[in-house]
Amino acid sequence: MLSIDRTTYDAIVAHAKKDHPDEACGVVAGPEGSDRPERFVPMTNAARSPTFYEFDPADLLSLYREMDARDEEPVVVYHSHTSTEAYPSRTDIGLAMEPNAHYVLVSTREHGNSEGPVEFRSYKIVDGEVTEEDVAVVQPAEAPKE
């Protein structure tokens, strides 16, 4: 199961709506081994395409260096589908290289850039095998009081 806080969930949805009709993509990093998606990192879709996404290779290196320095890993890897359902495509499955990540798919096909609900689904993709999992949206952890 993916447990994700409301603020991060909303940020992913907002990013997908903003970039529609192109696919939006990014990660939510978290402490290694924690399975806690904590740090929202929207990425640029270097492909700028409605049917494909790819992190820019230079941005990819910066992202992994930063996560390395912070002992983080990509807990969530998200992207949007803009005219099809929120289910991994054959390409998504073939290129899924993070066996520990939750692959989140958001579909903006219903409402595009406008207000309105989206499909938000999460999967494990390991060795070409897709397993859908439940998504629990939880309240953000309270900021420590001053």
Binding site: V27, F52, Y53, E54, F55, H79, P88, S89, L95, M97
Partner: peptide, 10 residues
Amino acid sequence: VVVLPAVAGG
């Protein structure tokens, strides 16, 4: 030398 698989899909 750093090896990183692309994060990409369709």
